[in-house]
Structures are given as C-alpha cells and as structure tokens.
C-alpha cells in the first residue's frame, strides 16, 4: 500500500466532503439526539428531561398515529406509482416520435419541483374555480371538497405524489424492459405464450429486481413527503394529513417544542435508516 508522505495531504483532499458531511449530516443528527433529551421552547433555557419526550410521544399515541398514517400514505404511493409506472412502461416501450414524446411528457412531472406540483394541484382541486370542481359540477355532482375531508385528503395527497413520481417509476421499468433480450420474448411467442403469459412467466420475473428497486426508492421518497402537505393541507383537516416530516415541522415551528420534534426526528432517522439498509441489501442481491 502506498503511504502518504505527510498525514495532512489526504486530509486536505478529503476535507471538502468531510466538512459537508459533518456540518449537514453528522452534526445535525448528533444535535437532534442531544436535544431530544431536553424540553425547550426556543425562548426559555432548555431543561434536561431524559427520555421523557419519547415516553410522551408513545403515551399520547402521537407516534403511533403519525407512523401509521405515513405508512398508509406510503402504501398508496408505492402501489400507485409502481402499477402506473409499469403500465406506462409497457405501453410506451415502442419506437417512434410519438411514444418518445409521451415518455418525456410523463417523465417531466418528476423534474418539476414539489412546491410547483403542489400548487398546480391545489389550483386543479380548488373547490370554487378548479377544473375538477367544474367537471363535477357539469356531471351533476355537487361541490366536493376533496382536500377538506379527513377521508379523502390522504388518498388525494397520495395521488398527487404518485402523479409526480410515476415518471421516475416508468423510466426505471423502461430500462428494465429494454434489458430483456428481444429473442427471449420472441422465443416465448413461438413457444405458444400469449401476451398475458409472456408477461406473467417471462417479463415479470425478469423485471422483479427492477421492481424491488423502484419499490424501495419510492417508499423512501413517500416517507419524506413534506412539501405537498405543507402547501396543500398544512396537515389538516383534523391532522388527517399530518405525515411524519410535517409532524416534526409542526412541533418545532408551530408548537415550539424542540425536544418533541427532536425525538420524532430521531425515530424518523431510525426508520429511514432501516429502509435504506433494506434497499441496499436488495440492490446487492440484484447485482
């Protein structure tokens, strides 16, 4: 092994990355863990409370409801984005200008910022002037306030998220589909497999690693949903759309409970860490 002449040389070279990592990642996590052991309202000096913040979260059921809600939201987003992305990939896996235009159009939603997407859908769903309201009105259905009802708000937010990330899922599935040799599909045709059998026995088994990857990444994306909630519902009505990251935001910037927020952050960190670990493990299996 080659040894550096001066110990300072490699340190210099690593410094930019190292500084970024410490300032924006390691230090915040450390601070969050530390602060989760205090009760602090940003105004008076912090008081050490030990694990009281965690216990309070568990006792109040807050943690249970936020986690459950987020998991439900994730389930809708992951299943929606995957099935829609796969269907679009199967439909659009063709040559020609028209198909490449539609592919780009679908993918373009993924490139737009979350806030812009949220605002766009806020307008579309506006109960007075939105397109959806107009359409419902024309169809004879009275005004439906999709974002103002606890039963509909979460599916609607999930729908918006699916709308945005389906392009990503589609591109991933297209890559997977194009990696399947044409010969294999042709052999299946000659072997007597119709379109459905070809998908079930040949294409889907070969797409499974891709599906695993798309599934885990969109799970992580959906777990981190914040902008959509912040812009479209602010967690309401009656907290029905308070997802994990928004709950953290709410408790620190609205309720000024830094300790509770930090405790939530630590739990969230652990959850995401395990999700990422799962993802990396599946990725390795794929390789």
């Amino acid at each position: 092994m080659m040894r550096p002449r001066k110990w300072i040389d490699p340190t210099w070279m690593l410094a930019p990355t190292l500084i970024l990592l410490v300032v924006f990642f390691i230090a915040p996590v450390g601070i969050a863990i530390y602060q989760s052991l205090f009760s602090w309202d940003l105004l008076t000096p912090p008081k050490p409370v030990g694990g009281a913040n965690y216990i309070a979260l568990l006792k109040s059921g807050e943690l249970f409801w936020v986690t459950g809600r987020t998991l439900l939201f994730s389930a809708m987003v992951v299943s929606g984005a995957m099935s829609l992305g796969l269907s679009l990939a199967l439909l659009l896996n063709r040559r020609g200008l028209w198909f490449s235009f539609v592919r780009s159009a679908v993918f373009s939603a993924y490139v737009v910022s979350w806030v812009a997407v949220a605002l766009l859908w806020l307008w579309i769903l506006d109960p007075d002037r939105g397109i959806v309201a107009k359409a419902l009105h024309l169809a004879g259905v009275g005004s439906v306030k999709l974002l103002n009802h606890p039963d509909t708000v979460l599916p609607v937010l999930a729908g918006v998220t699916v709308w945005k990330i389906t392009g990503y899922a589609m591109i991933m599935f297209l890559t997977g589909l194009q990696a399947i040799p044409n010969e294999v599909v042709e052999a299946a045709r000659l072997d007597g497999a119709g379109a459905l059998s070809r998908f079930r026995f040949i294409i889907w088994p070969m797409l499974r690693p891709t599906a695993t990857f798309v599934g885990t990444t969109s799970l992580v994306i959906s777990f981190q949903a914040f902008d959509v909630v912040r812009v479209m519902t602010q967690g309401g009505p009656v907290r029905a759309s308070t997802l994990f990251v928004y709950a953290i935001y709410e408790s620190i910037f609205m309720n000024l409970r830094v300790g509770t927020a930090s405790a939530l952050t630590v739990v969230f960190f652990v959850v995401l860490l395990s999700l990422s670990w799962l993802q990396i493990r599946m990725w390795r299996q794929k390789a």
Partner: peptide, 26 residues
C-alpha cells in the same frame, strides 16, 4: 415451427427443465 436463436434465448429465471417444458405447458 420451432426456432433456435443465436443468443439461445433461454428464460433466465427458469431452470433447464422449466425452460424445456415451457412450450408444452403453454
């Protein structure tokens, strides 16, 4: 008509037995 391809075109997720019995199964 049965065809043998240049790249073999075997079904990678199936065993040899499953590959060979696939046309019969279909």
């Amino acid at each position: 008509i049965a065809m043998v391809f240049q790249g073999y075109a075997l079904y990678p997720t199936m065993t040899v037995r499953e590959n060979m019995s696939f046309p019969l199964r279909m």
